[in-house]
Write a protein that binds this DNA or RNA. Structure first.
Length: 596
DNA sequence: CTAGGGTTAG
């Protein structure tokens, strides 16, 4: 018992350290609030010079109105003005609207130039409609223009976005043939594409290529792209190395570099490092902006520190940085995670009252919040509210809601939603199938689950390892040990390599079925297959052995687990303490389960 | 006047 108390004490001290670290991060934010007040005036100064610049608008309607009034003007404004409107629309990501206006230009007698065509190619690219984009290249030639490096880069980006790497390479070759040399942006585009595919190595290789190529040098954007990608893959250490590298090469980091790094260190819980980076950026007169602050708000919220997050929002307002939809959505999610749905709703109402964009994202957070609390009726109410607002629920909306219905055992309602989702034209993702399959398995509808699985197989859907994990767990749950084993052993023939989770599910199932030696065999197989067991695996198999009275084997594994610096979780510890109290276990075991 | 980098939900 004493050990348990000590465990708890160690855990609590660990938590306190985290919270202290977070407070440290937050208090240095309070410090920023009082020390830097110059930024708002800087922003205002940069905005005054733009009299002849393209008119700015923040919504499609304004753009359409402006465009139409330009059509009425006599004489007509130059093509440059029209292109500027299209550019703005593209920047606001209203690609379809830009394309629509473009199609109105011809009939109105406005002749697009090479710039116009490039903007529209970019729009088609973002909409994954490269067919149209490439046909505009034909039109560009026909009109007597020459594609330049921007045109080529735009097209290459679009092709890569559609995973048409071979054609992108072909175009690159053609570009070189025509004497167009890739520049920083071209490299940046290629590097970004590598990062999006999760290939950081290739991205870094391209960075090195860029250095030896000599025509252009790596700049802050390419470094930012790779640093951010590394951070997202929690390779924060590598990211920080690249960061040092760019500084040693006199490439000045900017607010984006720091935001990525701060996000990276926050996701691995290094609050002190986050604080250090924040201090460092401010000392270089690089000030956190709305995205940086949103990262901090989100981090605090995910740690359950919503009150502190609220005060960060106060700080940003004081500094003249308006929290946006993302900031507020993070806050809402923070309240949801704590089950404080009233407060989440309050933020939501505030957003609506302030007239800020309340989007599908915000609704999804609220729906997910209610679903996780199994308050499915309220989730449904929010869901209904979406269509009243004219918002179209997306795949994530449906997945959350279906999962919610499954979790309260209303599998039929989940299936109805699945049909509705298809009817609404929303494509089910692999996660959608995972939700439904899991719901069926957990609700003891194994036959239907298997039917769905067969359907997925026959429809040649991309079955990922997660689906197999769910089904194997479901088969064990339904007592179909043989089928679970068959499925598992047949996986490699299907080209799947089991992951840690699947091995763990297998061991749990085998132990539950009393197949101890097979579970042990699979544990050893993990090492050979280069998929080493994690803490969860050890805890699972140790509990399995203990339940099966395989005490000596369990003890051996506890020793092995501790040697690998994993520790017993609460459940395993409880079981061990229970067995000790019944004198079914050697007390010599105790020091092993004590956390360091 | 055209192209590239950072934040939120399942």
């Amino acid at each position: 018992m004493k050990m348990l108390v000590r465990n708890t004490a160690a855990f609590s001290s660990y938590c306190n350290n985290i919270i202290r670290g977070m407070h440290c991060l937050q208090s240095s934010l309070v410090f920023f609030a009082s020390s830097f007040h110059s930024q708002a005036s800087i922003i205002r100064n940069t905005q005054t010079k733009t009299m002849r610049d393209p008119p700015k608008f923040s919504n499609v309607e304004d753009a359409l109105n402006l465009f139409n009034s330009m059509l009425q003007m006599r004489p007509r404004p130059s093509i440059v003005r029209f292109t500027q409107v299209l550019t703005q629309l593209a920047k606001l990501e209203h690609y379809s609207a830009a394309i629509k206006l473009y199609t109105q230009m011809g009939p109105s007698g406005i002749v697009p130039d090479g710039y116009t065509l490039t903007v529209i190619m970019n729009c088609f690219g973002h909409l994954n409609q490269m067919g149209f984009s490439l046909s505009l290249l034909g039109k560009l030639y026909k009109c007597g223009f020459e594609p330049d490096i921007t045109t080529f880069t735009t097209l290459i980006k679009g092709l890569l976005l559609e995973n048409r790497a071979a054609e992108a390479a072909e175009l690159f070759r053609k570009m070189m043939e025509e004497g167009c040399k890739p520049d920083e942006v071209t490299f940046g585009t290629l590097i970004k594409s590598c990062c999006m595919k999760g290939n950081n190595r290739a991205a870094i290789q391209l960075l090195r290529k860029m250095e030896e190529y000599g025509h252009c040098k790596p700049n802050v954007v390419v470094y930012n792209t790779i640093i951010d990608s590394l951070c997202k893959d929690t390779l924060v250490h590598d990211a920080l190395n690249l960061f040092s590298e760019m500084i040693s090469k006199d490439i000045a980091p900017d607010v984006i570099t720091y935001t990525s790094l701060i996000h990276g260190v926050c996701t691995i819980g290094q609050w002190k490092e986050a604080t250090r980076l924040l201090n460092e950026m401010v000392s270089k007169h690089i000030f956190p902006d709305v995205l940086t602050f949103s990262v901090l708000v989100d981090t605090l919220c995910k740690e359950g520190m919503v009150v502190e997050a609220e005060s960060v929002v106060e700080i940003m307002i004081q500094r003249g940085i308006e929290p946006d939809m993302v900031t507020h959505s993070s806050l809402m999610d923070g309240y949801c995670l704590r089950g404080e749905m009233n407060k989440a709703e309050k933020v939501f109402d505030l957003m609506i009252r302030n007239g800020s964009n309340v989007g599908v994202y915000s609704y999804n957070i609220l729906i997910n919040g209610y679903c996780k609390l199994k308050r499915i009726e309220e989730a449904n109410r929010v869901f209904q509210g979406m269509s009243d607002k004219g918002l179209v629920p997306n795949t994530i909306t449906f997945n959350s809601l279906m999962d919610g219905f499954c979790k309260v055992g209303r599998i039929q309602d989940a299936q109805k939603l699945f049909n509705k989702m298809i009817a609404c034209g929303q494509l089910p993702s692999s996660q959608t199938y995972a939700v439904v399959l899991d719901g069926l398995c957990k609700n003891k509808q194994l036959t239907t689950a298997i039917k769905l699985f067969r359907e997925m197989e026959s429809r040649k859907l991309n079955l990922d390892i997660v689906i197999y994990n769910i089904l194997i767990e479901g088969l064990y749950l339904g007592g179909e040990i043989e089928s679970a084993r068959d499925l598992f052993y047949g996986l490699s023939a299907k080209g799947f390599q089991p992951d840690v989770q699947m091995y763990t599910v297998m061991m749990k199932g085998l132990c539950d079925g009393g197949l101890i030696s097979e579970a042990e065999k699979i544990l050893r197989e993990m090492e050979d297959k280069d998929c080493p067991p994690d803490g969860c695996t050890y805890n699972t198999i140790i509990r399995g052995f203990l339940y099966n009275k395989e005490t000596s084997k369990a003890v051996g594994l506890i020793q092995e687990m501790v040697n690998k610096e994993f520790s017993a979780d609460a459940w395993t510890t409880e079981l061990i303490v229970d067995l000790l109290s019944k004198d079914e276990l050697d007390p010599a075991l105790l020091p092993l389960i004590e956390t360091k």
